[in-house]
Design a protein around this nucleic acid. Structure first.
Length: 376
DNA sequence: GGTGGGGACTCAGAAATGTAGTC
DNA sequence: AGACTACATTTCTGAGTCCCCAC
C-alpha cells in the first residue's frame, strides 16, 4: 500500500489496502484507450463498489458516483515511482536487473525426460483490470489475485513438487498427467477459462507439434485438388446444407478465412466464416462478394472479391429472405464442416487451410525473388 | 446426430523491454 | 559518457481452433 488518497468530490479518501489496490489498477490505465470506454468504466466501478462492500470499507456508503472519483494523486505517485527508476544510474539499474534474473533463474527451466527445457510463462498472471479487445462486455472487471490454492501442478510421480512460494499456502493439487504438455494450470477469474504454464517455443514438445502442423499442410497439398473438385461439384447439390458447406469451404480455401466458432454473449461480437451474418456480406452483380466484418481480436476485415458465378448464385440463395442478425451459413456448423474435411484426409480441419495458404504464399514469394540478387 | 461444456493447444496484438545509432 | 530516440525483440495474456465426452 502506498497510502496515496483517492480524491472523491474534493475530499482525500485514504482507502483500505485492498480497495486502494483496485483504485491503483484503474489509475494505471488513466489516459489509455481502455479508460475512455463506457463498458470498461462501468464494469470497473461496479467491481470497485463490490470490493468495498465485501471488505466492509468505510467508504462503501460514500463513493457512489464514478464521475466524482479522481485518481490523479495515485497516478502521480505511479509516475513518480517510474521516474525514480529512470533516474537511477545505469550501473545501479543493471545490478537490480541482474539480481532479479538470478532470483527467477530456477523457475525458467524444467527437466523433461532428462533434458533441460525452457519454460515459457513461469509467472501466474498478476491481478489487475481485464482489458480485452474491441467491445468486450467484461472489459474493466477486476481480475483477482491467483493463489497457490488455485494452481494445479503437473509433474513426474518420482519428482518433488516445486516448493510453494507463499508461506502458509499450498498447491491446489499435484497431478502426474503423461498425455499433456502443460506444467501447471489455474482458472481465469473473469472468463473462467484455463490458463496454463507451458514449455517455451523452442522445447521438443512445441517443436514436434509445429512440425506435425506443417506436415499436415504438406499433406493437404496432395489432396487439395480433390477437395476443390468436390466442393465445386457440391455448389450444384440439391441439398442446401451441402451447398452451404461447399461455399464455406471455398471461402476458407480461397480467402484463408478462419472457421468462425460460435461465441457467447459475454465475449466481443466477432466472426469467422461459419458465423458470418447477413450484415457482413454484400453481393454486387455480376459476381462480386464484398465482406466486411470484425474478425479475431476485433480486427476489421474488408475485402471485395470476384467469385465463381456458381458461388455468387449460391450466396444469393443463402441470403434470400434473411435479415440482419441471421447466419449466412445457417445449415453449417464448425463441427459438421470439420467432420466433412476429415473425410478427405486424416487431421484435416479448417485451420490447416490457413497454414497451407501461408506456406504456398511464402513459397511463391521465395520463387519470385530467387535469382534476383535479393536478401529474403 | 445435435448440443454444450470441458480441456488443451496455437495464434496474435499490445505492452514492456532491449539495443543500436546519434548527438 | 550519458541522454535521447527509433526500431527490434520479448513477454504477456486475450482470442481463437478443435477434439472429447455426456446427455
Amino acid at each position: 500500500p502506498h497510502g496515496k488518497p483517492l480524491r472523491y468530490d474534493g475530499e482525500n479518501l485514504h482507502l483500505e489496502p485492498e480497495i486502494e489496490e483496485i483504485a491503483t489498477f484503474y489509475a494505471a490505465k488513466l489516459g489509455t484507450e481502455h479508460a475512455k470506454k463506457k463498458t470498461f468504466n462501468q464494469n470497473f466501478f461496479a467491481d470497485f463498489k463490490r470490493a468495498m462492500r465485501k471488505h466492509n470499507s468505510k467508504y462503501s456508503g460514500i463513493i457512489k458516483d464514478f464521475k466524482k472519483c479522481d485518481f490523479s494523486v495515485i497516478r502521480a505517485h505511479l509516475d513518480a515511482v517510474k521516474a525514480q527508476q529512470k533516474d537511477m544510474r545505469p550501473c545501479e539499474r543493471k545490478a537490480i536487473r541482474e539480481a532479479e534474473a538470478a532470483r527467477v533463474a530456477k523457475y525458467q527451466v524444467a527437466i523433461v525426460d532428462g533434458r533441460e527445457e525452457k519454460v515459457g510463462n513461469y509467472r501466474v498472471e498478476p491481478p489487475g483490470l481485464f482489458l480485452g479487445r474491441g467491445e468486450h462486455p467484461l472489459a474493466g472487471k477486476v481480475k483477482r489475485r491467483i493463489l497457490p490454492e488455485d494452481v494445479t501442478i503437473n509433474i513426474g510421480e518420482q519428482e518433488t513438487p516445486p516448493e510453494c512460494p507463499l508461506p502458509g499456502h499450498r498447491w491446489k493439487k499435484i497431478v502426474h498427467e503423461h498425455s499433456v504438455t502443460w506444467l501447471a494450470f489455474w482458472r481465469d477469474s473473469i472468463t473462467s477459462g484455463f490458463k496454463y504454464v507451458w514449455l517455451g517455443a523452442g522445447s521438443a514438445f512445441k517443436g514436434m507439434s509445429d512440425h506435425s502442423k506443417f506436415e499436415k499442410a504438406r499433406k493437404l497439398h496432395g489432396v487439395i485438388g480433390h477437395v476443390r473438385a468436390e466442393y465445386r461439384r457440391a455448389w450444384k447439390s440439391k441439398d442446401l446444407s451441402e451447398q452451404q458447406r461447399a461455399v464455406a469451404t471455398y471461402l476458407i480455401d480461397v480467402l484463408a478465412l478462419r472457421v468462425g466458432n460460435e461465441k457467447s454473449e459475454d465475449e466481443a461480437d466477432t466472426v469467422g466464416c461459419c458465423s458470418l451474418r447477413f450484415e457482413h456480406v454484400k453481393l454486387e452483380r455480376p459476381s462480386t462478394l464484398r465482406l466486411d466484418f470484425l474478425g479475431k481480436d476485433s480486427i476489421r476485415y474488408v475485402n471485395s472479391v470476384s467469385v465463381d458465378p456458381a458461388v455468387f448464385a449460391c450466396l444469393q440463395r443463402f441470403l434470400n429472405g434473411k435479415k440482419n442478425g441471421d447466419d449466412v451459413f445457417d445449415l453449417v456448423t464448425v463441427t459438421s464442416l470439420n467432420d466433412y474435411l476429415r473425410g478427405f484426409m486424416d487431421g484435416l480441419s479448417g485451420k490447416v487451410f490457413r497454414t497451407y495458404n501461408a506456406s504456398v504464399t511464402l513459397d511463391r514469394l521465395l520463387q519470385d525473388t530467387a535469382g534476383r540478387d535479393r536478401v529474403v
